[in-house]
Structure formats: structure tokens, C-alpha cells
Amino acid sequence: MILRRPDRVLIQGITGKQGTFWAERMREYGTAIMGGVNPKRGGETHLGLPVYASAKAAMKGNGFDVSVLFIPPLGVKEAALDAIEAGAKGLVVLTEHVPVQDTMYILAAAKEAGTRVLGPNTAGTVTPGECFAGFMPAFNAKIVRPGAVGVVSRSGSLGTLVCLSICQAGFGQSAFVGIGGDPVIGTTTREALEALDTFPGTRAVVIVGEIGGTMEEEAAEYAVTMKKPVVALIAGGAAPEGRKMGHAGAIVVGDKGSYASKRRALERAGVRVLATPNDVGAALAEALA
């Protein structure tokens, strides 16, 4: 799930406004963009890249390893299945509001095919100094710099702020893995934590979590086995109970998935849980001293 420079990337939905804007940013940064997909514009070129009618056609053409989807919610299932059937090793699904049953269908197909999925509703993944997939401001040196801190985040915006705090404290990131804010997603906090634990150059990991679900609690079970320091920030401690806070995943009903439950599980696993995003720098300085 951590993108490397040799990974060949396809952009499904490359001809749209956002697909165009971010394909250019990714390419400038060093991501190996091989082409894009638009079912109605196969055979054209866009940004100097070949446009294919399908991911399967792209695989026969320039080929690709990972596909990034800039596709509207109700089109995601078809596009994702196209990429999985084409033999994609990984998918980055940026779209928010994908119907959950569509996501489950995609993930079942991906599991069988051995395709790794990030998202839906993720900002993507960044390997500083190498490449990125999605819409993270990787090119902003105030926010993303090569370094030794791995970040796993459910939220793009809060993950970006944590990356900023890491840089302000004089550190940088080994990799950023956005897993997405939806209730059902392809890669969990725990799976991303495991990947970051073994990713070269990573000396510490920051978990950026949120109320709702049980992913932070599950990640704590792995964190307890880690030798590297882990710090965590859980958003939503001040959220009122029983109301959905934008991310479909962020809902608190009783104690299940609550801030207190997550904090307790992480602290028991030896993870330092921070009060504010601005504490990330100081906590890392202490942990890495």
C-alpha cells in the first residue's frame, strides 16, 4: 500500500477537472503516470498521456501497477472492478459517498484477485521525495519532507495538519498512508501500521484516528508488539454522541467506538495519545531522542 517510484500508475477519470489537476501534480512530483482512462475517449491523448477506454485496455497498452480513481460515487464499482480484472496490484479510491454495498463488492473482488485497496474516501498515499497517489499536498515542503516518521490517517485534512506539525518540529515523513474516512475501507489502521512498521527508514509512527468503528482498538493490538514508538491523535473527543460528523465512519453510539474507548486501548498498548495536533512535534522529539 506504500507507493514506490517504480510503481506504474494509471488514472481512471484523468480527463476530468480534478483528475487533470492532480495527474499533473503527481507527475511533477515523480509518480510514474502511464496513462488514464475515460470510456468515451479511448485513443486520445491528454496531458501528453494515452487515454484508454478501460483499465483492461491500459494494461494491454502501457501497463500499470496501481490505479487511482477520480470517479463519481456511483461509477466507482464499475471502474474498480475493471481495474481489478485488468490485474491491478493496488487501487487508490479517493471518492467520497461510495455506496457501502458497492465498496463491499469491490473489496470482495479485490481480496480474491490479490489487489490491495486504499479507501474509499482517502486522500491517498505519499512517499516523500519519491512519488504520491491521490490529492495530498506532497509538493508543499512545509507539509511533506522526507524523514523517519510514518503516518497513517483516516482523514486527509487532519492528516495534512499532522504532516505539517511533523515538519514544523524538524522531522519529516517516511510515508503517509491515507486509509479513508468511510466505515468500510480496504486497508485498516492496523494493516497500515504493520506496513509502516516494516517500511525502510521509519523510526516512529503517528496514528491519526477518529471516533467511530473499532480500527484504533484493533491497531492497538499490533502497536503493543512494536519496538518503534507510536503516538496517536484521535479526533472527535468533543463530538456530541449519536450524531454523524461528516465522515460516515465517525459516529458514536454509547461507548462503542468512543474517544474514551480508543484512548484506553491505545494507552494500554503503550501508545502516547496526544491532546492536540500541535503536540505531535514535541511527542516525536521525546520519542526519538
Binding site: S153, S155, L161, A235, A239, H247
Partner: peptide, 22 residues
């Protein structure tokens, strides 16, 4: 973003204030 908004509300609480909205 929902995550940043929740973190902002948490921060308002952290300083002893009360958010008026999400």
C-alpha cells in the same frame, strides 16, 4: 474535512471554549 473539523472542535474545547457548530 470531517477529521480536521472534529480536531478544531476538540481544540476549542481544549482551551475551555464551546463550539457552536460542526
Amino acid at each position: 474535512g470531517a477529521g480536521l473539523t472534529m480536531a478544531t472542535m476538540d481544540m476549542v474545547r481544549h482551551w475551555g471554549g464551546r463550539p457552536a457548530n460542526f
